[in-house]
Every structure is written in structure tokens, then in C-alpha cells.
Write a protein that binds this DNA or RNA. Structure first.
Length: 416
RNA sequence: CGGAGAGUGGUGUAACGGUAGCACGAGUCCUUUGGGAGGAUUUAGUUCGGGUUCAAAUCCCGACUCUCCGACCA
């Protein structure tokens, strides 16, 4: 894409009403815009990153047998009454609305009830299970206090997967497969080294212990105790001697860290399937409960966590797989000759499937470099009179200082 | 929800109760082009509603909004 065509602009100053690093950098670089507290728009660059994250998750969910659906935002209270969750005392962060006639509706908060109810229509026999259903869907939560930029908001895109298994064993097997899948997702999105599976409390979803995925960051809301060698952590909320022992951890090896909850996986048992009448008959014609699990990742929060982990004083440093573009091609000076050469490099890269942001703007070199640092695309190619004299360009990685001088004909092989 | 702080051009900031100023941005023209260039010129602002006062961005009351700490967090 031509940067001159990009409607967003970078900001030199940090917005005074944002303290969190993720929102400061994302707003300054033009990835997002604040609509109001806890409600952010994704602008072209931000949407590109969001879509990259979505696609990574989609690939991994499909890999483990997930079937993608898209459930509605408006929800039928009848289903929620069956599980007792329509009650404001049970779930206190619903946004609810009414039809003109006064009929109450829910605005998507989570989807256990509607997805389970959907399966009642299709799943009748043990032969129809297991089933794994997921979606990318906007969730609305009436948070009393939003915070941490885009990490705790009232409207956000979530990947939620629901598993329906015949037995506890079958469920547990999938639960572990999904945990592995999450580890892959966090690795691919660039935060694998600082993200840990974490024992946590289930809250109102489930009575027992659950698993979270926590990313070490000063911007986090949680406190966890991590055994880095074992890649396992325990959330402060369930940090008891009993649990430490139960999971084979050693108190002396646990390090306390602040962290961001980027994902979670919950055993749900048959709480929802029983309440909504999702049953199957087994081989002997005996009616059986369906064992469920749910598995969530907040895409915006993950995006924010990536920025919190990968930035420096100049701006964002995108991990390769989630960067809005693969390459930032920066032309300095605006002569015919440079424009022509840059255009050729741009077209050549596009032809080989490399995504390029081409800074063709008539701006000073300093401003272009500052913008490139702020936007944070991992590879920068600079073309100027100076490099053109040697029939070359400069290639620089965002997180490194050193430059590489490369012949124009060799650009493609040098950015792999 | 409890507590604290803050609302001034698009952005960032200044102004004792007494002329709303500066920087960046944006527009036009010229000169520039390797780390947010220079000159000329133009543009645009006190969150809202009351009150005190000769006079309010400034003091008081209320509303709204934002941020932070806490609580909460499926």
C-alpha cells in the first residue's frame, strides 16, 4: 500500500488521556482510535494486525477440528433463564436492551447458552460427538471500570470455542490438545517466551480450577507465580500450599510476576448441556450428559499484550507474523529516478506475495524514519540518492541497529 | 461501585480573578530533503448548565467526560 494513500496520520505527541503503553503507541501510530472509555475503533493498520491474529487463531482452531460459526449479538433471554444466568446478581456485566414492545433482549456477553441450544437441534446420538465449535464474535461487557488501554474494554472481538464430548476422558484429551494449540498461537503471535499456562479460579463459570494463559508484563492486572523451567504458573487467587503441591510445583522455584490474561480454557462439565437439554443416547440406549469446555482468546487484548511486550522508546516492534506489512519501503528524496526505482522494487515485492507499505510521501527523511520506527514493521528498506549511487538499498531490521547494503537486484532474497 | 485527579484550537501545553499565548499540525507560496527542516502568510480553542463578581479559563455548585488507585473481572 502507498503510504501517501493511507488516511491515518501519526501523532508526534502522546494523547494526554492515555497512560497505557499499548493505547499510546497504537493511537500515535494510527492503528486505533478511541470512541469512548473502553471502546476503540480499529483503523486500517490496526485492522490488518487484528486480521493477522484472527487468521493465526483460525488456522490453529481448524487444525484441532474446530468448526467455525458466527452466532448473533442479540440474544434470547429464555435460554439464559434456563441456566440461571439472566439474573443480574449472577452475571452483573450484561448489556441488556428491549424491543419496542418491551421484550427484553441480551447483548452478547458470552455464548455457552445459544451454542449449546443450537446443538440440541442437531446432536441426538453419541455418534454425533465430539463436536468443537468456535467463532470470532464481538462481546459486550458492562465493565465498571475500563483500564489498560485496549486490554480491558466494554466491546471486543473474542475467539470462543466450545467443546462437546461424550465422556470426561474424551473431554480431558481435547482440553489438553486445545492447551497445546494455545501455546502455538501465542508462540506465533510473538509472545510465546513470556506466556505461561496458569492454574486459576473458575469464577462464576465453573466451580473447579481452570487454566489461563498469562503473559508477563508490567501492564498486567494479575499476579502469578511462575516456574519458568516447567512453563507453568499459578495465579495468586489460588496460590495455596495445597495447590502448589497438587500441581507438582516447588514454592522456592516460583517467581512472582505481573501478567496479562491473554486466554483461558475452562472445564464446564454438564452444567449448561443439562440445563438446556442437550443429551445423547449411548450404545446401550442410555441417556448421557454431554461434557463441555470453553476456550477463549480476546483478540484486542492479545494485540495490546503484543505491543506491551514488543516496543521501545521509538515505537512498536511487530513480531513477523502479526505485522501489518512484511516490509516498509521508505524512499528519501522525491526525485523521478528514486520514485521510479522504488516503484519497481515495490511492484516486484508485491508480485512475490510480500506485503509492502511504501512510504512515497514527500516528507523529510527524519519524519519518515520516525514514522517507520513508530509503526514498527519488522523490515525497513531505504532507498535514496546515496544508495542509488551504488545501485543499492539499505535493509534494516526494526529491532536491530545495523544496516545491510544490498544490491537492488538482490532485495528479494535478502528479506526472507 | 468506593476513593483521588483532570477537562483550554486537530494534538501537546501556558495564562495572579483583569488583552486567551506558545509549539506541533493543517492551508497557500518559496527554499529544502539521511533522524520529526527553514522563511513568509493564513487557520482554529476555554466541556456543558447555573452562581459569585465591575470583570471568570481561573472562585463556588451541579452535570457530563477522561485518567489513575481500589473493589470486580464469565
Amino acid at each position: 500500500m502507498y503510504q501517501s494513500q493511507l488516511f491515518t496520520k501519526t501523532l508526534k505527541e502522546t494523547p494526554a488521556d492515555e497512560i497505557s503503553i499499548n493505547a499510546q503507541l497504537l493511537i500515535r501510530a494510527g492503528f486505533i482510535q478511541k470512541e469512548m472509555a473502553g471502546v476503540y475503533d480499529y483503523l486500517p493498520l490496526g485492522l490488518k494486525v487484528l486480521k493477522k491474529i484472527e487468521n493465526i487463531i483460525r488456522e490453529e482452531m481448524n487444525e484441532i477440528g474446530g468448526q467455525e460459526v458466527l452466532m448473533t449479538t442479540l440474544q434470547n433471554p429464555e435460554l439464559w433463564k434456563k441456566t440461571g444466568r439472566w439474573n443480574d446478581q449472577v452475571v452483573d456485566n450484561w448489556f441488556k436492551t428491549k424491543l419496542v414492545g418491551g421484550t427484553e433482549l441480551g447483548i452478547a456477553n458470552t455464548h455457552e447458552e445459544p451454542i449449546t441450544a443450537t446443538l440440541v437441534n442437531f446432536v441426538k446420538s453419541y455418534k454425533d460427538l465430539p463436536v468443537y465449535i468456535y467463532q470470532f464474535q464481538t462481546k459486550f461487557r458492562n465493565e465498571l471500570r475500563t483500564k489498560s488501554g485496549i486490554m480491558r474494554v466494554r466491546e471486543f472481538l473474542m475467539k470462543d470455542l466450545y467443546s462437546f464430548s461424550r465422556t470426561e476422558e474424551e473431554f480431558k484429551k481435547f482440553y489438553e490438545i486445545c492447551a497445546e494449540s494455545y501455546i502455538k498461537i501465542f508462540k506465533r503471535t510473538g509472545i510465546g517466551d513470556v506466556t505461561f499456562r496458569t492454574i486459576a479460579a473458575g469464577g462464576s463459570f465453573t466451580a473447579g480450577l481452570t487454566d489461563e494463559f498469562q503473559t508477563i508484563s508490567k501492564a498486567g492486572e494479575d499476579i502469578v507465580y511462575i516456574d519458568k523451567a516447567k512453563k507453568l504458573a499459578i495465579n495468586k487467587e489460588v496460590y495455596t500450599d495445597e495447590n502448589i503441591k497438587k500441581f507438582g510445583l516447588n514454592k522456592s522455584k516460583l517467581e512472582e510476576e505481573k501478567s496479562i490474561e491473554v486466554g483461558n480454557i475452562f472445564p464446564l462439565g454438564s452444567k449448561y448441556s443439562d440445563a438446556l437439554g442437550l443429551k445423547t443416547k449411548d450404545e446401550n440406549g442410555v441417556e448421557k450428559s454431554v461434557i463441555m469446555g470453553c476456550y477463549g482468546i480476546g483478540l484486542g487484548r492479545l494485540l495490546g499484550a503484543i505491543v506491551e511486550v514488543h516496543h521501545d522508546e521509538k515505537g512498536i516492534i511487530w513480531p513477523k507474523e502479526v505485522s501489518p506489512f512484511d516490509v516498509h519501503l521508505v524512499q528519501i528524496e522525491n526525485s523521478q529516478k528514486i520514485r521510479k526505482t522504488a516503484e519497481k522494487i515495490y511492484q516486484d515485492l508485491l508480485k512475490t506475495g510480500i506485503e509492502v507499505l511504501y512510504d512515497d510521501r514527500d516528507k523529510s527523511a527524519g519524519e519518515k524514519f520516525a514514522d517507520a520506527d513508530l509503526i514498527g514493521i519488522p523490515i525497513r528498506i531505504v532507498i535514496s540518492e546515496r544508495t542509488l549511487a551504488k545501485n543499492s538499498v539499505e535493509i534494516k531490521k526494526r529491532q536491530e541497529q545495523k544496516l545491510k547494503i544490498v544490491k537492488i537486484s538482490d532485495v528479494r532474497i535478502n528479506i526472507k
